[in-house]
Protein backbone atom coordinates (compact mmCIF):
# COMPACT_ATOMS: atom_id res chain seq x y z
CA UNK A 1 0.00 0.00 0.00
CA UNK A 2 2.70 2.40 1.01
CA UNK A 3 4.79 1.34 -1.96
CA UNK A 4 1.97 2.33 -4.30
CA UNK A 5 1.65 5.70 -2.67
CA UNK A 6 5.32 6.42 -3.24
CA UNK A 7 5.06 5.28 -6.84
CA UNK A 8 2.07 7.50 -7.50
CA UNK A 9 3.82 10.40 -5.90
CA UNK A 10 6.91 9.90 -8.05
CA UNK A 11 4.96 9.55 -11.25
CA UNK A 12 2.94 12.67 -10.62
CA UNK A 13 3.82 15.34 -13.14
CA UNK A 14 2.96 18.22 -10.81
CA UNK A 15 5.42 16.97 -8.18
CA UNK A 16 8.23 16.84 -10.73
CA UNK A 17 7.39 20.31 -11.93
CA UNK A 18 7.49 21.67 -8.38
CA UNK A 19 10.93 20.10 -7.93
CA UNK A 20 12.06 21.56 -11.27
CA UNK A 21 10.75 25.01 -10.32
CA UNK A 22 12.52 24.89 -6.93
CA UNK A 23 15.74 23.75 -8.61
CA UNK A 24 15.61 26.56 -11.16
CA UNK A 25 14.77 29.09 -8.46
CA UNK A 26 17.75 28.06 -6.35
CA UNK A 27 20.12 28.31 -9.33
CA UNK A 28 18.79 31.79 -10.03
CA UNK A 29 19.08 32.89 -6.43
CA UNK A 30 22.74 31.88 -6.50
CA UNK A 31 23.16 33.87 -9.71
CA UNK A 32 21.51 36.95 -8.33
CA UNK A 33 20.87 37.89 -4.70
CA UNK A 34 17.81 39.90 -5.76
CA UNK A 35 15.95 36.92 -7.13
CA UNK A 36 14.69 35.36 -3.90
CA UNK A 37 12.93 38.46 -2.71
CA UNK A 38 9.15 38.30 -2.37
CA UNK A 39 8.56 41.53 -4.27
CA UNK A 40 10.73 40.29 -7.12
CA UNK A 41 9.06 36.88 -7.16
CA UNK A 42 5.63 38.48 -7.34
CA UNK A 43 6.71 40.96 -9.95
CA UNK A 44 8.08 38.31 -12.33
CA UNK A 45 4.62 36.75 -12.38
CA UNK A 46 3.76 39.48 -14.90
CA UNK A 47 5.74 37.49 -17.47
CA UNK A 48 3.39 34.56 -16.98
CA UNK A 49 0.10 36.08 -18.09
CA UNK A 50 0.34 35.92 -21.90
CA UNK A 51 1.97 32.49 -22.01
CA UNK A 52 -0.46 31.39 -19.29
CA UNK A 53 -3.60 32.40 -21.18
CA UNK A 54 -2.40 30.85 -24.44
CA UNK A 55 -1.05 27.77 -22.66
CA UNK A 56 -4.36 27.12 -20.88
CA UNK A 57 -6.24 27.47 -24.16
CA UNK A 58 -3.81 25.19 -25.92
CA UNK A 59 -4.25 22.61 -23.14
CA UNK A 60 -7.99 22.48 -23.79
CA UNK A 61 -7.53 22.15 -27.55
CA UNK A 62 -4.98 19.35 -27.22
CA UNK A 63 -7.06 17.57 -24.55
CA UNK A 64 -9.96 17.39 -27.01
CA UNK A 65 -8.03 14.85 -29.06
CA UNK A 66 -8.32 14.04 -32.75
CA UNK A 67 -4.92 15.60 -33.44
CA UNK A 68 -6.13 18.86 -31.94
CA UNK A 69 -3.59 21.69 -31.87
CA UNK A 70 -3.78 25.42 -32.48
CA UNK A 71 -0.81 27.01 -34.19
CA UNK A 72 -2.78 30.18 -34.89
CA UNK A 73 -3.42 31.50 -31.36
CA UNK A 74 -0.36 33.76 -31.55
CA UNK A 75 -1.61 35.25 -34.80
CA UNK A 76 -5.09 35.67 -33.29
CA UNK A 77 -3.45 37.64 -30.48
CA UNK A 78 -1.61 39.84 -32.98
CA UNK A 79 -4.63 40.48 -35.18
CA UNK A 80 -7.11 41.25 -32.41
CA UNK A 81 -4.48 43.47 -30.77
CA UNK A 82 -3.87 45.63 -33.82
CA UNK A 83 -7.59 45.90 -34.68
CA UNK A 84 -8.19 47.06 -31.12
CA UNK A 85 -5.38 49.63 -31.45
CA UNK A 86 -6.78 50.90 -34.75
CA UNK A 87 -10.21 51.26 -33.14
CA UNK A 88 -8.76 53.22 -30.23
CA UNK A 89 -6.80 55.37 -32.67
CA UNK A 90 -10.10 56.20 -34.37
CA UNK A 91 -11.56 57.37 -31.10
CA UNK A 92 -13.25 54.28 -29.68
CA UNK A 93 -13.30 54.04 -25.89
CA UNK A 94 -10.63 51.59 -24.74
CA UNK A 95 -13.02 49.57 -22.58
CA UNK A 96 -15.32 48.98 -25.55
CA UNK A 97 -12.28 48.27 -27.71
CA UNK A 98 -11.06 45.68 -25.21
CA UNK A 99 -14.36 43.85 -25.29
CA UNK A 100 -14.22 44.04 -29.06
CA UNK A 101 -10.70 42.52 -29.11
CA UNK A 102 -11.89 39.58 -27.02
CA UNK A 103 -14.85 39.20 -29.38
CA UNK A 104 -12.57 39.19 -32.43
CA UNK A 105 -10.45 36.50 -30.80
CA UNK A 106 -13.59 34.47 -30.16
CA UNK A 107 -14.73 34.89 -33.76
CA UNK A 108 -11.38 33.87 -35.21
CA UNK A 109 -11.29 30.85 -32.90
CA UNK A 110 -14.81 29.95 -34.04
CA UNK A 111 -13.57 30.06 -37.64
CA UNK A 112 -10.80 27.59 -36.78
CA UNK A 113 -13.28 25.35 -35.02
CA UNK A 114 -15.70 25.52 -37.90
CA UNK A 115 -13.07 24.31 -40.36
CA UNK A 116 -11.62 21.70 -38.02
CA UNK A 117 -14.65 20.26 -36.23
CA UNK A 118 -17.44 20.73 -38.75
CA UNK A 119 -15.46 20.35 -41.98
CA UNK A 120 -13.28 17.66 -40.36
CA UNK A 121 -10.06 19.14 -41.67
CA UNK A 122 -6.80 18.36 -39.87
CA UNK A 123 -6.19 20.94 -37.11
CA UNK A 124 -2.50 21.18 -37.82
CA UNK A 125 -2.92 22.25 -41.42
CA UNK A 126 -5.94 24.51 -40.82
CA UNK A 127 -4.28 26.46 -38.03
CA UNK A 128 -1.02 26.61 -39.97
CA UNK A 129 -3.00 28.24 -42.74
CA UNK A 130 -4.96 30.60 -40.50
CA UNK A 131 -1.77 31.47 -38.59
CA UNK A 132 -0.30 32.94 -41.74
CA UNK A 133 -3.63 34.36 -42.88
CA UNK A 134 -4.32 36.23 -39.61
CA UNK A 135 -0.68 37.20 -39.08
CA UNK A 136 -0.38 38.56 -42.58
CA UNK A 137 -3.61 40.56 -42.30
CA UNK A 138 -2.25 42.06 -39.05
CA UNK A 139 0.93 43.06 -40.89
CA UNK A 140 -1.01 44.37 -43.86
CA UNK A 141 -3.41 46.66 -42.02
CA UNK A 142 -0.61 48.21 -39.93
CA UNK A 143 2.00 48.32 -42.71
CA UNK A 144 4.16 46.25 -40.39
CA UNK A 145 4.60 48.91 -37.73
CA UNK A 146 3.52 48.68 -34.07
CA UNK A 147 0.72 51.00 -32.94
CA UNK A 148 0.47 52.79 -29.61
CA UNK A 149 -2.61 55.00 -29.48
CA UNK A 150 -3.64 53.98 -25.96
CA UNK A 151 -4.54 56.51 -23.22
CA UNK A 152 -2.48 56.47 -20.02
CA UNK A 153 -5.30 54.99 -17.92
CA UNK A 154 -5.38 51.90 -20.13
CA UNK A 155 -1.95 50.94 -18.78
CA UNK A 156 -3.45 50.31 -15.31
CA UNK A 157 -4.39 46.77 -16.24
CA UNK A 158 -1.01 45.72 -17.59
CA UNK A 159 1.40 47.85 -15.61
CA UNK A 160 -0.44 48.51 -12.37
CA UNK A 161 0.02 46.60 -9.12
CA UNK A 162 -2.34 45.89 -6.26
CA UNK A 163 0.13 45.84 -3.40
CA UNK A 164 2.99 43.73 -4.73
CA UNK A 165 0.84 41.72 -7.14
CA UNK A 166 0.57 42.75 -10.79
CA UNK A 167 -3.03 43.60 -11.74
CA UNK A 168 -2.92 41.44 -14.87
CA UNK A 169 -2.14 38.39 -12.73
CA UNK A 170 -4.69 39.13 -10.02
CA UNK A 171 -7.57 40.21 -12.25
CA UNK A 172 -7.00 38.18 -15.42
CA UNK A 173 -4.83 35.09 -15.15
CA UNK A 174 -5.82 33.84 -11.69
CA UNK A 175 -9.61 34.17 -12.17
CA UNK A 176 -9.47 32.54 -15.60
CA UNK A 177 -7.28 29.70 -14.33
CA UNK A 178 -9.71 29.10 -11.42
CA UNK A 179 -12.74 29.15 -13.74
CA UNK A 180 -11.12 26.66 -16.11
CA UNK A 181 -10.03 24.46 -13.23
CA UNK A 182 -13.60 24.37 -11.87
CA UNK A 183 -15.03 23.68 -15.33
CA UNK A 184 -12.66 20.80 -15.91
CA UNK A 185 -13.03 19.26 -12.48
CA UNK A 186 -16.62 19.90 -11.50
CA UNK A 187 -18.82 20.22 -14.57
CA UNK A 188 -20.35 17.86 -17.07
CA UNK A 189 -18.64 19.81 -19.83
CA UNK A 190 -15.23 18.97 -18.35
CA UNK A 191 -16.05 15.29 -18.06
CA UNK A 192 -17.35 15.21 -21.61
CA UNK A 193 -14.16 16.91 -22.79
CA UNK A 194 -12.02 14.14 -21.29
CA UNK A 195 -14.37 11.54 -22.79
CA UNK A 196 -14.08 13.05 -26.26
CA UNK A 197 -10.30 13.27 -25.96
CA UNK A 198 -9.88 9.72 -24.74
CA UNK A 199 -12.19 7.94 -27.15
CA UNK A 200 -14.25 10.03 -29.49
CA UNK A 201 -16.13 7.08 -30.95
CA UNK A 202 -17.31 5.94 -27.53
CA UNK A 203 -18.14 9.54 -26.61
CA UNK A 204 -20.31 9.89 -29.69
CA UNK A 205 -22.07 6.62 -28.97
CA UNK A 206 -23.06 7.78 -25.49
CA UNK A 207 -24.58 10.89 -27.04
CA UNK A 208 -21.87 13.53 -26.67
CA UNK A 209 -21.58 15.84 -29.65
CA UNK A 210 -17.90 15.44 -30.52
CA UNK A 211 -18.12 18.05 -33.25
CA UNK A 212 -19.67 20.72 -31.03
CA UNK A 213 -17.27 19.93 -28.17
CA UNK A 214 -14.17 20.36 -30.33
CA UNK A 215 -15.57 23.45 -31.99
CA UNK A 216 -16.11 25.03 -28.57
CA UNK A 217 -12.48 24.33 -27.60
CA UNK A 218 -11.10 26.34 -30.52
CA UNK A 219 -13.60 29.09 -29.72
CA UNK A 220 -12.43 29.25 -26.07
CA UNK A 221 -8.81 29.26 -27.19
CA UNK A 222 -9.55 32.16 -29.57
CA UNK A 223 -11.32 34.06 -26.78
CA UNK A 224 -8.33 33.58 -24.46
CA UNK A 225 -6.00 34.83 -27.22
CA UNK A 226 -8.22 37.90 -27.60
CA UNK A 227 -8.04 38.55 -23.84
CA UNK A 228 -4.26 38.07 -24.03
CA UNK A 229 -4.17 40.73 -26.76
CA UNK A 230 -5.86 43.23 -24.42
CA UNK A 231 -3.45 42.43 -21.58
CA UNK A 232 -0.42 42.64 -23.84
CA UNK A 233 -1.47 45.97 -25.40
CA UNK A 234 -1.93 47.39 -21.93
CA UNK A 235 1.28 45.88 -20.57
CA UNK A 236 3.56 47.06 -23.37
CA UNK A 237 1.38 50.06 -24.33
CA UNK A 238 1.70 48.95 -27.97
CA UNK A 239 -0.01 46.52 -30.29
CA UNK A 240 2.52 44.93 -32.60
CA UNK A 241 1.43 42.95 -35.69
CA UNK A 242 3.93 40.24 -34.73
CA UNK A 243 3.29 40.35 -30.97
CA UNK A 244 1.88 36.84 -30.69
CA UNK A 245 4.17 34.83 -32.91
CA UNK A 246 6.74 33.70 -30.32
CA UNK A 247 3.99 32.46 -28.03
CA UNK A 248 2.77 29.56 -30.17
CA UNK A 249 5.74 27.37 -29.35
CA UNK A 250 5.58 28.46 -25.72
CA UNK A 251 1.90 27.61 -25.41
CA UNK A 252 2.41 24.10 -26.76
CA UNK A 253 5.50 23.66 -24.57
CA UNK A 254 3.58 24.71 -21.47
CA UNK A 255 0.68 22.35 -22.23
CA UNK A 256 2.92 19.36 -22.95
CA UNK A 257 5.33 20.10 -20.11
CA UNK A 258 2.30 20.19 -17.82
CA UNK A 259 1.56 16.58 -18.72
CA UNK A 260 -0.99 16.96 -21.51
CA UNK A 261 -0.71 14.07 -23.94
CA UNK A 262 -0.45 15.29 -27.52
CA UNK A 263 -3.02 12.59 -28.42
CA UNK A 264 -5.68 14.04 -26.16
CA UNK A 265 -7.63 12.86 -23.14
CA UNK A 266 -4.79 13.14 -20.64
CA UNK A 267 -3.70 16.28 -18.83
CA UNK A 268 -4.94 18.85 -16.37
CA UNK A 269 -5.24 22.56 -15.75
CA UNK A 270 -3.15 22.16 -12.57
CA UNK A 271 -0.28 20.59 -14.53
CA UNK A 272 -0.33 23.39 -17.06
CA UNK A 273 -0.29 26.02 -14.31
CA UNK A 274 2.79 24.40 -12.73
CA UNK A 275 4.44 24.34 -16.17
CA UNK A 276 3.66 28.05 -16.53
CA UNK A 277 5.47 28.65 -13.23
CA UNK A 278 8.53 26.76 -14.48
CA UNK A 279 8.62 28.55 -17.82
CA UNK A 280 8.18 31.93 -16.12
CA UNK A 281 11.08 31.29 -13.75
CA UNK A 282 13.18 30.19 -16.72
CA UNK A 283 12.25 33.30 -18.62
CA UNK A 284 13.10 35.64 -15.76
CA UNK A 285 16.42 33.82 -15.45
CA UNK A 286 17.20 34.49 -19.09
CA UNK A 287 16.37 38.14 -18.59
CA UNK A 288 18.57 38.28 -15.51
CA UNK A 289 21.44 36.82 -17.51
CA UNK A 290 20.58 39.08 -20.45
CA UNK A 291 20.24 36.25 -22.97
CA UNK A 292 18.49 36.89 -26.30
CA UNK A 293 14.91 35.71 -26.76
CA UNK A 294 15.83 33.55 -29.75
CA UNK A 295 18.08 31.46 -27.51
CA UNK A 296 15.23 31.36 -25.01
CA UNK A 297 12.97 29.88 -27.69
CA UNK A 298 15.66 27.33 -28.52
CA UNK A 299 15.79 26.24 -24.90
CA UNK A 300 12.01 25.96 -24.85
CA UNK A 301 12.19 23.80 -27.97
CA UNK A 302 14.59 21.47 -26.22
CA UNK A 303 12.37 21.43 -23.13
CA UNK A 304 9.37 20.65 -25.35
CA UNK A 305 11.02 17.62 -26.98
CA UNK A 306 12.34 16.29 -23.68
CA UNK A 307 8.99 16.67 -21.93
CA UNK A 308 7.14 14.80 -24.68
CA UNK A 309 9.73 12.02 -24.53
CA UNK A 310 9.06 11.73 -20.80
CA UNK A 311 5.28 11.99 -21.33
CA UNK A 312 5.08 9.19 -23.81
CA UNK A 313 7.45 6.83 -21.99
CA UNK A 314 5.67 3.93 -20.43
CA UNK A 315 2.47 4.83 -22.18
CA UNK A 316 1.42 3.13 -25.32
CA UNK A 317 4.10 3.70 -27.94
CA UNK A 318 3.25 7.12 -29.33
CA UNK A 319 4.05 6.21 -32.88
CA UNK A 320 2.77 2.72 -32.78
CA UNK A 321 0.58 2.19 -35.81
CA UNK A 322 -2.47 1.82 -33.61
CA UNK A 323 -2.13 5.39 -32.45
CA UNK A 324 -1.71 6.68 -35.97
CA UNK A 325 -4.68 4.70 -37.14
CA UNK A 326 -6.75 5.96 -34.28
CA UNK A 327 -5.96 9.55 -35.17
CA UNK A 328 -6.83 8.86 -38.77
CA UNK A 329 -10.14 7.30 -37.93
CA UNK A 330 -10.85 10.23 -35.68
CA UNK A 331 -10.61 12.54 -38.65
CA UNK A 332 -12.73 10.43 -40.89
CA UNK A 333 -15.59 9.57 -38.66
Amino acid sequence: MKKYAVKNWASNRVVWLVILALGLASILSVMSPYFLNLTNLLSITQFSVIVGLLGLGQTLVILGGGGGIDLSSGAILSLSGVIMALAVAHGLNFVVASVMAAGIGLALGCLNGLLIAYQRLPALIVTLGTQYLFGSIALGITNGTPLSPFPASFADLGQGFLGPIPNQVLFVLVPIAIILWVIMRKTLYGQQLYAVGTNSVAARLVGISVVRMRWSLYAINGLLAGVAAVVMSSWLNTASPTAGSPYVLESITVAVLGGTSIFGGEGSIGGTIMAIVVVTILESGFQLANINSVIQLGTLGLLLILSVMVNERGRMNALSPTRLTRMRRDHEQ
Binding site: I69, L124, L249, I252, V256, I262, F263, V294, I295, L297, G298, T299, L300, G301, L302, L304, I305, V308, M309, E312, R313, N317, A318, L319
Partner: peptide, 17 residues
Protein backbone atom coordinates in the same frame (compact mmCIF):
# COMPACT_ATOMS: atom_id res chain seq x y z
CA UNK B 1 8.33 8.53 -29.51
CA UNK B 2 7.63 12.22 -30.07
CA UNK B 3 4.97 13.16 -32.62
CA UNK B 4 6.47 14.67 -35.80
CA UNK B 5 4.85 18.08 -35.36
CA UNK B 6 6.17 18.54 -31.84
CA UNK B 7 9.60 17.10 -32.62
CA UNK B 8 10.22 19.30 -35.65
CA UNK B 9 8.68 22.37 -34.02
CA UNK B 10 11.20 21.84 -31.24
CA UNK B 11 14.22 21.26 -33.48
CA UNK B 12 13.16 24.25 -35.58
CA UNK B 13 13.48 26.59 -32.60
CA UNK B 14 16.72 24.94 -31.50
CA UNK B 15 18.36 25.39 -34.93
CA UNK B 16 17.03 28.94 -35.17
CA UNK B 17 18.70 29.68 -31.85
Amino acid sequence: HVSPIVATLGTMSIWEA
